[in-house]
Simulated scan of single mutants.
Amino acid sequence: MLQRAQVRITRHLEAELLVAHDLPLASYDVLMQLAEAPERRLRMNDLADRVLLSRSGLTRLIDRLQRDGLVAREACADDARGLFAVLTERGEARLAEATPTYLRGIRTQFLDMLGPDEIGEVRSMLAKLDITGAP
């Protein structure tokens, strides 16, 4: 049941973001994670953990986002092999445009279907499961 709800909500969010902003949900997630990170950047390994993608999957996604000017790569000063993904101003603007669509989708597909007590219960359950989006 939980999986079906997750798939339904994810499909709806994906469709809405693609139609309104030509932005897949995974791309939105990457931009959001970078926007919330200190200095708007994360090491690629840390970003992969946060967005639940394989390293190779994230690399391909970052390649596309970089081609679109939404993300840049920067070398890591203390690790010659390490790379940072960095949110660009264009990426920040695209995220700002897409966020109302994303939040509206979360509200209509999830929050509006629950009462205030149920939302509190869900928050409590997620806290117990430590589903916070943090690595």
Rank of each mutant, 00 (worst) to 15 (best):
49 D>W: 03
49 D>S: 07
51 V>D: 04
51 V>Y: 09
52 L>Q: 07
52 L>S: 10
52 L>P: 04
53 L>D: 08
54 S>C: 10
54 S>G: 15
55 R>T: 11
56 S>D: 09
56 S>E: 07
58 L>P: 12
58 L>R: 13
61 L>H: 09
61 L>N: 05
61 L>W: 04
61 L>I: 03
63 D>W: 03
63 D>G: 05
63 D>C: 02
63 D>M: 02
64 R>L: 00
66 Q>K: 13
66 Q>G: 08
67 R>A: 08
69 G>I: 01
69 G>S: 05
70 L>Y: 07
71 V>W: 01
72 A>L: 08
73 R>Q: 05
75 A>W: 00
75 A>M: 00
75 A>F: 00
77 A>D: 06
77 A>N: 05
77 A>M: 02
78 D>L: 09
78 D>R: 15
80 A>H: 10
81 R>Q: 13
82 G>I: 02
83 L>G: 09
83 L>W: 08
84 F>K: 12
84 F>H: 14
84 F>Q: 10
84 F>Y: 14
84 F>R: 13
86 V>G: 11
86 V>I: 06
87 L>H: 13
87 L>V: 10
87 L>T: 10
88 T>M: 09
88 T>E: 07
89 E>K: 14
90 R>L: 14
90 R>I: 08
90 R>F: 11
90 R>C: 11
91 G>V: 03
91 G>F: 06
92 E>R: 15
92 E>D: 13
93 A>N: 15
95 L>W: 03
96 A>F: 06
98 A>K: 05
98 A>R: 10
99 T>W: 02
100 P>H: 07
101 T>H: 03
102 Y>W: 13
103 L>C: 13
103 L>V: 12
104 R>F: 01
106 I>F: 06
106 I>A: 08
107 R>Q: 12
109 Q>Y: 10
109 Q>T: 12
